[in-house]
Design a protein around this nucleic acid. Structure first.
Ligand SMILES: [Mn+2]
Ligand SMILES: [Mn+2]
Ligand SMILES: [Zn+2]
Ligand SMILES: [Zn+2]
Lengths: 138, 138
DNA sequence: TAGTGTATGCAATGGAAGTGCATTAATTTG
DNA sequence: CAAATTAATGCACTTCCATTGCATACACTA
């Protein structure tokens, strides 16, 4: 897939075999994934390499880290032209207690949060836990 | 302090020496504290005991756990008559990157969050990171 | 082709949460 | 009061995940 290479190159990430595969994997997932998820899929690869691949993706703004409160860091690809800016890019994350999946609700941007005087907001994490649409219909 | 005993008893927690001390410690703190904080203060006590003391406090709705994204769980006393209900009790937490303190902004309740159809919200975590009022004035 | 920088793999570390079990303290009951 | 029961504490150990150091393999350039 030349497509994948383009994506990496656009973000100044050298398209190694591993990176292409991990990117592919991320593209195919509709929900956020953990390092362990990647590790279990690419059994032949070393955990550290996968860890650093994800780290590289985050640093090059190709993906973002998600702290969903489970204690396990999740990752998801960023939207087009995302720079993880507090006012424009940050969005709500939802963690389902039943299927255990965490998803980006990219349409639900973080609402404007009023803070007490002299507080400066630089980053916001908004996570809702509950039951997702899929699990709710069962 | 008979006061302390009353607080514990009201929440059906037996007032042991350790619990009274930890409660006192929590009352004196304006910002949230970690297990390690408690451990460092009560050097003679065992970590597990302190851990379970905090756990007991949380289970009896005397305190609440705070996940501020630092990877270390914080604890803070609940407000009067708090049951950690999503609509009435949950509030914003602020983590300062400079002084590293996490505080409850109990006046800032979690705003109403609109979710996609069929999603059910059971819990919300809203953490803002940045610079607190104290650090900002320097 | 030699050389340099980057990517990968393996091993080890570190921090924090949590559990099992023995011991001690407190409470209940006969 | 003494025995029996229940609850709290202390110590050791485990598990899980993130992260780093260092050696080797690979890729690209001069
Ligand atoms: Mn996201
Ligand atoms: Mn709070
Ligand atoms: Zn679900
Ligand atoms: Zn501060």
């Amino acid at each position: 897939m030349i497509e994948l290479e383009q994506i990496l190159k656009k973000n100044n990430v050298k398209p190694t075999a591993m990176r292409l595969l991990v990117l592919q994997f991320l593209l195919n997932k509709k929900s956020a994934i953990s390092l362990t998820d990647v590790e279990e899929y690419f059994v032949k690869s070393d955990r550290t390499t996968l860890y650093r691949t994800l780290k590289t993706f985050v640093e090059s703004e190709l993906a973002h880290k998600i702290d969903d409160g489970t204690g396990v860091t999740k990752y998801a690809l960023c939207e087009e032209n995302c720079h993880c800016e507090i006012d424009t890019d940050l969005h709500l994350h939802f963690h389902c207690k039943l299927c255990n999946e965490t998803s980006c609700l990219t349409d639900h941007k973080i609402p404007n949060i009023s803070l007490p005087k002299n507080f400066i907001a630089e980053d916001v994490n908004l996570v809702v836990k509950g039951i997702c649409n899929k699990c709710n219909s069962n």
